[in-house]
Design a protein around this nucleic acid. Structure first.
Lengths: 362, 362
DNA sequence: GTTAGCACTCTCTCGTGTTGACTGCTAAAA
DNA sequence: TTTTAGCAGTCAACACGAGAGAGTGCTAAC
């Protein structure tokens, strides 16, 4: 980003040390502070000069004369760019994340919730997950299951979880019709995307042979139902925030008014969407937005870590962690990488497994 | 409860007025305060005497000499017992609650979450819902649906929502077997409870004829899976808390430390269970626990409103609203009554509908 | 039983003074 | 040229005390 200036080796070290220290302790960095953390061969006066210079360059700032210094957004940015090495996560958290992916034959929205839960727990910050492109998931199996309430359950098994939605149905349609319709959809759209199915099913209706005509009514309502699900998700439904309360653990949010402002944003789906508005820089797995880089007014003194789960270059889901600018960037980056990694494993697993099951309904 | 003392008509009126006023304004009640709210024909000195007397009886207390008075737990209790009339809810909230019950052909745990969400929104207080006896729900239909992941979905349609759970399955079992097993279970246990099914299915296994023997493996894992679901729910899984953050709206919880203590309890399933430990007084739809009546240490200056959804005298789910002792008891009572009422409607609807659908799988 | 009047109490707020932690700067030393 | 010691200056944080204001309890009169 702003790599025009090149810091001397010593300034570099001092800055990284200072930011790291501040992330841990949350209290302004003083010259003697820096000295005791690895610069015992220099006097505090010298370090004061260096800190002063770093301040002049915009990496640090003082809250008031005679106070220690805190990193600016530019300072954090420098730190993040410099330190992107992994930090080991607690094993129990890794296991927990892993377990979610193990038992993943649950509904996609549940998966999203659980991921948000676990990531929030792992990082101790509020976490939002946004599902944006479920239509791009690969269909593995489709089932339409009539219920007793005058509705039917649409179950679409995909490579990343089950999509499920309700549709109204007409009475007096024999069950076999639903089974046949399910089998038709499965065999026709297996390994295609949900979007393909929504788009192309109309074409199939036009050229339907005698045996397909009876599905017409079912397909119509089903497509309608999937479209509305897609719309709902596109509008706001695909957003979940979890662990909002963890914000209160940060000393910078002991002030309830400040905390409420952020929490209000997290509770408002359309504002969360803004966070994920633009595409991610595809060259890194995890990206950070710090301070004014965030396109939401009330989050100007926050930082957001983000990772996307991508299929064929398009992101299906985005995970975001919101915290103060003084957040544990290293730990968060490693947690996010791990989650995205689990997603990737999943995909490969599915490709490997492909075609070994005979699950067609009879 | 403590109805030993009988208050004079005037004291009664003053007390109710005072509590109501305090619930609205959250600032200690003064003598002139009471005077302006309907006692203009009395002097503040007289009212001071009355307030003094009410304090001596334990209904009110002063935070310090020369401050106004606030209700004690005993004062709130008196108020709650006296005023149990309904307060109209906002129509939009009624509609929202109603909508949940309309579209209820969703999974039971989702219903629980949504109810907690809506009640919390309606009352503006944190709300917990505890599902305790799903085994007592009436079975309407059972479906076992094999998935591609080596698992099968158990879908049990009941009179109050769908229970769904996963079970592992063995490969190479034809789909028809699952269909047959589903049909067998549905026809055998329709209108029985889930508990009945779990208990009696073993008996059926013993006297299984030739045609049932093939289901043996399926039933075994299914019962195991349902039992573990039942255990999970019994232990802690059936508890959801929603809207914890709304606690921060109350002036008594502006102090973060205080708020965190309560929120910690709400985040801890086993502590929530304690709240619902003892059975409800069956004579009223809504019951309140105030202050020391609550069996949880950290909630001693809270109040909890509770309603149960009962089937055949046994409660299936409990809803609890947690707030400061100064909560809007009337509004909360009416919200809870409405929710429970919707549950009851549901039951009647189901009984009326019984037997009109032909949803057996072919 | 009710009321006016008055003294009393306690919180809340605001201003003041003090302390302690850092810094910036300057001048000498390396 | 870089580093360092020393010192004056700055500011947050805390404690203290005075004054105002709100509300009470009590007493004596109605």
């Amino acid at each position: 980003m702003n790599d025009d200036e090149i810091l001397s080796e010593r300034k570099h070290e001092i800055l990284l040390n200072a930011v790291e220290e501040y992330i841990q302790c949350a209290s302004p960095i003083t010259s003697s502070n820096v000295r005791s953390k690895g610069f015992t061969d220099l006097s505090t006066a010298t370090l004061r000069n260096e800190l002063n210079a770093l301040e002049a360059m915009g990496y640090l700032r003082q809250l008031h004369t005679s106070s220690g210094r805190v990193p600016t957004a530019k300072g954090y940015r420098y730190y993040v760019n410099a330190i992107m090495c992994d930090v080991p996560l607690e094993k129990s958290i890794l296991d927990e994340i892993h377990a979610i992916f193990e038992n993943r034959a649950v509904y996609l929205d549940d998966v999203v919730n659980e991921i948000a839960d676990v990531v929030s727990k792992a990082t101790n910050y509020p976490t939002v997950v946004m599902l944006k492109g479920f239509e791009k998931l690969q269909i593995k199996n489709v089932k339409i299951i009539p219920l007793m309430t005058g509705q039917a359950l649409i179950l679409i098994e995909t490579n990343s979880g089950i999509i499920n939605n309700l549709m109204p149905i007409k009475p007096n349609i024999p069950n076999q019709t639903y089974v046949d319709a399910s089998n038709f959809l499965t065999s026709t759209f297996e390994n295609k995307t949900v979007a393909d199915m929504i788009k192309n099913i109309e074409g199939y209706r036009v050229q339907m042979g005698q045996e397909l005509v009876e599905f017409k009514g079912i397909f119509d309502t089903m497509i309608q139902s999937l479209k509305s699900l897609s719309d709902t998700i596109a509008q706001k439904g695909g957003v979940t925030a979890r662990g909002e309360l963890r914000l209160l653990n940060s000393p910078e949010y002991q002030d309830l008014e400040k905390a409420k402002k952020v929490i209000d944003v997290l509770t408002n789906p359309s504002e969360i969407e803004q966070i994920f508005e633009d595409d991610m820089d595809t060259d890194s797995e995890v990206s950070f937005k710090i301070g004014s880089e965030i396109p939401v007014v009330d989050l100007q003194d926050c930082a957001i870590a983000r990772a996307d789960y991508q299929v064929d270059g398009e992101s299906i889901a985005s995970i975001g962690i919101i915290g103060p600018q003084r957040m544990d960037y290293a730990k968060i980056a490693s947690a996010l990488k791990f989650v995205v990694g689990e997603f990737e494993n999943l995909k490969q697993l599915d490709n490997a497994k492909e075609g070994d099951g005979d699950n067609e309904q009879k």
